[in-house]
Every structure is written in C-alpha cells, then in structure tokens.
C-alpha cells in the first residue's frame, strides 16, 4: 500500500509541478516581444506583411519601414515551410486589419520541417489552426504536449520568445560578411532545392486567402550569392506561377557585390538594404 501511495504521490507531484511550470512559461511567452507572441497578443498590426523562411529575414524591417514609411510585420522563421506559414498568415488575417501588401519569398516551398512545426507547440494554445496542424502532422508530439505542459516549451521557439522577452526581434539578421574561405567554395556545391507539390499547394491557398481579403500579394525570389547555383529554382518559379496565377519577381542574381552576403543564401544588413531599395523601386512594397 505504501508503494502505491508513493507512486500516486509521484504522479501528482509530477503533473502538478508540470502544470504550474507550464502556466508560468506560458505567461513568459505571452509577454514576450517575439513576433509570434505579438501576433497572438494582438500587437502586430501592419501595412506590409512579410513571409518566408530564413531568407524571409532578408526583409530587414527597420530599413523597410524607414524608406516606405509603412509599418511592417515579419512572420518569417528559419526553415519555415508554407503549410506553417499558411496557418500563421490566416491567423494574422483573422486578427488584424487587412494589410496593403504581403511579400512572400517562395523558396519556403523548399522543405518540410516537422522539427520547427513541433516548436510551434509553444503557441498551440493560442491557435486552433496551429493545434490542428500539429495534431494532424505530428500526433506523438501533440500528445506529448497534452501529457506534459512543460514539453510544449521544449523547443527553440520558446527559447527565442524568452530571449526577445524585453527586446525587439525586428532587426533580426546575421550581420557579417561571408568569409573568403566559404565564398571560394561557392561554385562547388549547388544548393539542392527540393520542390514539394504539397508545399506549393499550401502557398497557393495562402495566396487565394490573402487576395480574397484584399491583400496585394507579391511573390519574390530573394538574392543568392553571385554565381551560387541553386538546383530547380526555375522549376519552382514556374510551378508557383502556374499554381497561383501570379508572376514571381526573380531577384536571385540582382546583387553582384559579395560583401552584401553573410553566406550563400542570406544577406547581411548592407545586402538587405540594397534588396529592399530594389523592391521599392519595382513597386513591390506599394506606392
């Protein structure tokens, strides 16, 4: 009998401690300045909505706001696939006034990312759509989140929310110049971009939803390091144009200065500014 009582005490202690800690962590997340905390807190109204994976972080917000005079909100995250982006965009459009523009870097059709999706368990209590997506794609993770409240915060997304608790993430960009050693390797290994029809369909549905709400959607391919080869990029561009019926603005080789890049696929602040200026002059960011 003593053993059974001890075992019940262990379960009670574990679950009570877990729920208590989970509640505390949830409060931390809710108060954070991290983009998704702001999204679900109702603190993210903007005129330009930016979407992408790590290359979506090339949309350097402080400069974009400076030269357009418009408020921006960036939903991008490293490795974000379009199915997750679709949920976030839909949640945004449900909660905020319609933005004038939505700029999407289409290279987020590149890969599935279950690890990142699992990380969004942190925000699953805020969004039925997110919760449903995680449940359908990662049922074990979803159940893990139901059993342990702390498990919902066992990911990088939570760590970022904690890091940005009292500081903005709008200037999030790796600001250094690609090393000469790495740059020399550039032409050796083409980036193996994959095309997932499922992700292209998700992008198409995102575009349809946004346009139905009156958002001006702009699809772009951001710059790559000069001479850097990306397999299948043209195939992806054609597939997206065919699916969405919208033209894709191709900026992959518009920047020829190697010092604009932090690596082959990402810009630094200097490069980002040049890219944003180019988009502005092309009317991508509105009038």
């Amino acid at each position: 009998m003593k053993r059974i009582i001890w075992f019940i005490a262990l379960l009670l202690l574990f679950f009570m401690g877990d729920r208590l800690a989970g509640h505390f962590l949830q409060k931390l997340v809710e108060q954070s300045q991290f983009r998704y905390s702001r999204l679900y807190r109702g603190d993210a109204a903007a005129e330009i909505l930016l979407v992408g994976n790590s290359r979506g972080l090339n949309f350097f917000q402080p400069y974009m706001e400076e030269i357009t005079g418009k408020k921006t909100f960036n939903l991008s995250y490293n490795g974000m696939p379009t199915d997750l982006a679709k949920v976030l965009v839909e949640d945004y459009l449900d909660r905020y006034p319609t933005p004038e523009k939505m700029v999407v870097d289409i290279t987020n059709c590149d890969r599935m990312n279950d690890e990142l999706l699992a990380g969004f368990l942190t925000y699953s209590a805020e969004s039925f759509r997110l919760d449903t997506l995680i449940n359908s794609k990662l049922p074990k993770i979803w159940w893990g989140g139901k059993i342990s409240a702390m498990f919902r915060f066992n990911n990088e997304i939570f760590q970022r929310a904690l890091y940005h608790r009292n500081r903005t993430d709008e200037n999030w960009l790796r600001d250094h110049v690609i090393s000469a050693k790495l740059a020399a390797e550039g032409s050796d290994k083409p980036y193996p971009l994959e095309i997932h029809p499922y992700l292209v369909r998700q992008l198409k549905e995102t575009v349809i939803t946004a346009r139905a709400k009156g958002v001006g959607v702009e699809l772009v391919i951001g710059p790559y390091f000069p001479g850097y080869r990306v397999n299948n990029l043209d195939v992806l561009k054609n597939a997206v144009e065919e699916a969405t019926g919208l033209p894709v603005r191709d900026y992959q080789q518009v920047l020829t200065d190697p010092t604009c890049f932090s690596d082959f696929r990402h810009l630094n602040v200097k490069g980002s500014k040049a890219f944003i200026e180019r988009m502005k002059s092309d009317g991508v960011l509105g009038n």
């Binding site: 262990l10 202690l13 401690g17 702390m150 066992n154």
Partner: peptide
C-alpha cells in the same frame, strides 16, 4: 519528479 521534469523540458 525532478528528472522527469528535466526530461520533459529538455529531452
């Protein structure tokens, strides 16, 4: 309980 919490939070 401590080890289970650590595993749930960091595993």
């Amino acid at each position: 309980a401590g080890l289970l919490w650590l595993i749930a939070f960091f595993g």
